[in-house]
Deep mutational scan, measured.
Amino acid sequence: VPQRAWTVEQLRSEQLPKKDIIKFLQEHGSDSFLAEHKLLGNIKNVAKTANKDHLVTAYNHLFETKRFK
């Protein structure tokens, strides 16, 4: 089981690129989880459509539901 890579403050910070969060989610989330949160596909394309709040919610949801690969 992966550990949380970032704190809530870090997740919301401008310093953390959306692409980093997407990469983490794609590496650790199950396909059904990723599909549900519309996070499947090319990281660049996902970054265009997903806002930061959406990614933070998905990140927290992944750990709450433990839907890891």
Rank of each mutant, 00 (worst) to 15 (best):
K23P: 01
Q15C: 11
I22L: 09
V8S: 14
N60C: 11
T49I: 14
T7K: 03
E14F: 07
K69P: 07
G41I: 02
I43Y: 10
I43T: 08
L40Q: 11
K19Q: 15
L62I: 05
L40K: 09
K48F: 10
P17T: 11
L25F: 04
E9T: 04
E36V: 08
A35M: 13
R12C: 15
Q26C: 05
H37I: 03
N51L: 09
H54Q: 12
L62W: 02
E36Y: 10
A50E: 06
P17Y: 09
A35H: 13
N51K: 09
I43M: 08
R12Y: 15
H61Y: 11
L62N: 00
S32Q: 10
I22M: 04
E27L: 08
K69N: 10
T49N: 12
P17I: 06
L40R: 09
A58P: 01
N42F: 10
K66G: 13
K66C: 11
K52E: 03
Q10L: 05
D31R: 14
H28D: 01
R12P: 03
F68Y: 07
H54G: 11
A35V: 09
K44E: 15
I43Q: 06
R67H: 07
F68V: 02
L62Y: 02
K44Q: 13
T57W: 15
N51F: 08
L34G: 02
Q15P: 05
A58S: 07
D53W: 08
A50F: 10
S30P: 04
S30I: 05
G41Y: 03
K23T: 10
L11P: 02
K44I: 12
T65Y: 15
K52L: 07
K18F: 05
K38V: 07
Q15Y: 13
V46L: 13
G41L: 03
Q3G: 06
K44W: 12
A58L: 06
Q10F: 07
A50C: 11
W6D: 04
S13G: 05
T65C: 14
V46Q: 04
L11H: 03
V56E: 06
F33M: 01
V1W: 15
L16C: 13
L39K: 00
R4L: 06
Q15N: 12
I43F: 07
K66Q: 10
K69I: 06
D31P: 12
L62H: 01
F33D: 00
F63Q: 02
N45V: 14
R4I: 05
K18D: 07
D53P: 07
F33C: 01
F63D: 01
E64D: 13
K48A: 15
V56N: 03
K23Y: 07
S13Y: 04
K18C: 14
E9S: 04
D20F: 06
A58Y: 04
Q10A: 06
K69F: 05
R12D: 06
K44S: 14
T49D: 11
R12V: 12
T7D: 12
V1I: 13
V8W: 06
N42Q: 12
